[in-house]
Design a protein around this nucleic acid. Structure first.
Length: 272
DNA sequence: AATTCTACCAACCGCAGCTCT
DNA sequence: TAGAGCTGCGGTTGGTAGAAT
């Protein structure tokens, strides 16, 4: 995996772009498309590296970029998605039309992170999962999934059990069943269910697969110590997740419920 | 009015993964 | 199959504007 040598060339301009450079880049891309970023500077007669051109275009010059402050709805989405996928800014940006990953990242670091810090929620909990975001997020998903399953079991008490059809999932068969059940029974307000079935959920399951398998292997039947350890990890992750949800619910008005009775999911009577 | 501090954001750097040969 | 080239992503930095002293 070699590194791109384009920025190593001497004499290429760095730093802020001038309006003339912007116009040159926009005119060229609108006329020809960006094609190969590496070749673009030469073709557009810009004294910049391709990487710089791509960044300028994607983060600033693209016509579909939405400018201005983030709306409350966008803030909610960012917090919600960050809780699920972590610092996958491009993934989060994909769910917010007109916003770039760089913009979201900056917004998170300068605004939302501070709010979390004030709440004392920015530090990962101590323990084995602290350095493993995938494991922590898997635990978060698992917590939400369990709640979804509980809800679904109540909702479909008279219905037949769903057949597992979800493929590529690294979680347990019950998770796959929940995923299938979700497809059949999900209500629009069911945030988790929608996310689980979305591209994000799919990417997450895929990304978390090795961790999940490893964790399952680590649990030897009858081995109380590893089971207990796993239980503690899950509890810590679940506690962290709950803290995050509490913050999101109270501070940003996310999800449903009120102080003390907050839930990722809407009350049953809403679904009924 | 001058200086220092803080917040914000555009841009850079380097790594990782994908594609092609 | 291995290595080189290219692109995309996430972390970090540096410049600037506005606020505070």
């Amino acid at each position: 995996m070699g590194r791109a040598p384009c920025c190593d060339r001497k004499g290429l301009k760095k730093g802020p772009w001038t309006p003339e450079e912007d116009k040159q880049l926009v005119d060229f891309i609108q006329a020809n498309g960006h094609g190969s970023w590496r070749l673009l500077p030469k073709l557009a007669e810009l004294n910049r590296c391709g990487k710089s051109c791509r960044l300028r275009w994607t983060n600033y010059l693209r016509p579909d970029i939405k400018r201005g402050p983030f709306t409350a709805e966008e803030q909610k989405s960012i917090v919600q998605l960050h809780g699920i996928v972590g610092n996958k800014w491009s993934m989060i940006a994909a769910q917010l039309p007109g916003r770039t990953d760089n913009e979201i990242k900056n917004y998170w670091n300068t605004h939302l992170k501070k709010q979390l810090r004030r709440m004392g929620l920015d530090e990962p909990p101590p323990g084995p999962t602290a350095g493993c975001p995938a494991a922590r997020h898997m635990a978060q998903w698992e917590t939400a999934r369990l709640e979804a399953e509980a809800r679904l079991s109540l909702l479909s008490s008279s219905g037949a059990a769903a057949t597992a059809t979800t493929s590529g999932s690294a979680s347990s068969s019950s998770t796959a069943a929940a995923g299938a059940a979700v497809a059949d029974h999900a209500k629009p307000a069911d945030v988790f269910l929608r996310l689980w079935n979305s591209d994000i959920g799919s990417s997450f399951r895929k990304a978390a697969a090795p961790v999940s398998v490893k964790e399952e292997e680590a649990v030897v039947p009858g081995d109380d110590s590893s089971a207990a350890s796993n239980e503690m990890d899950s509890a810590a992750a679940a506690a962290e997740y709950q803290m995050f949800l509490d913050f999101a619910g109270e501070e940003l008005g996310l999800f449903h419920g009120r102080h003390g009775g907050f839930s990722l999911f809407p009350p049953l009577d809403v679904l009924a």
